[in-house]
Amino acid sequence: MEPSPQLSAVLFDLDGTLLDTAPDMIATLDQLLVEESHQPIDYEYGRAHVSNGALGLIDIAFGELEEAHRLSLRDRYLKLYENHLATLTTSFAGMDAVLEHLEQTNIQWGIVTNKPGYLTEPLLETLGLLSRCACVVSGDTLPERKPHPRPLLYAAELIGLEPASAMYVGDASRDIEAGRAAGMTTVAATYGFIMPDDDPGAWRADHYVDNPVDLINLVERYA
Rank of each mutant, 00 (worst) to 15 (best):
L65E: 09
Y208A: 00
P196R: 06
G94I: 11
G201I: 08
S37V: 07
D20T: 02
T186H: 12
A93G: 03
L124N: 01
L71G: 00
L18K: 09
G94V: 11
L124S: 02
G139H: 06
T120S: 14
Q39A: 15
T28Y: 13
E103F: 00
T113S: 15
L65S: 06
H207E: 08
C135K: 06
G128D: 06
V169T: 05
L14A: 05
V137H: 02
Y81D: 10
L78G: 07
P3V: 07
D171R: 04
K146T: 09
P40I: 02
A27P: 07
M167K: 09
Y168N: 12
S4W: 07
A97D: 15
V219W: 03
Q6H: 14
L152A: 09
G117W: 01
E157A: 11
L32A: 12
R221M: 06
P212I: 15
Q104L: 11
E157S: 14
T186K: 11
G179N: 11
V187D: 10
M1E: 10
C133I: 01
V112N: 10
A68Y: 03
L102I: 02
S37H: 15
T21I: 12
D13R: 07
V219H: 01
L32I: 15
D24W: 01
D96G: 11
H207Q: 06
R145V: 11
D214Y: 13
N114V: 03
T126Y: 01
A93E: 13
G128Y: 04
S173D: 07
A9W: 01
D199P: 00
V136E: 08
A223H: 14
D42P: 02
L29F: 06
V10C: 10
G53F: 14
D210F: 08
H207A: 08
L32D: 13
R145E: 10
M184E: 04
C133V: 09
E44W: 09
L71R: 15
D210Q: 14
D96L: 11
A178V: 08
L33I: 01
E36Y: 02
R221P: 01
T141L: 08
D175I: 07
T105S: 14
T186A: 15
V137E: 02
A68C: 02
L78C: 08
E66L: 06
K146G: 08
D13Q: 08
L71T: 12
G94M: 03
P3L: 04
E66Y: 01
S51A: 13
M25P: 12
R132Q: 12
L7D: 03
S173T: 03
A223R: 15
T21N: 03
P116Y: 05
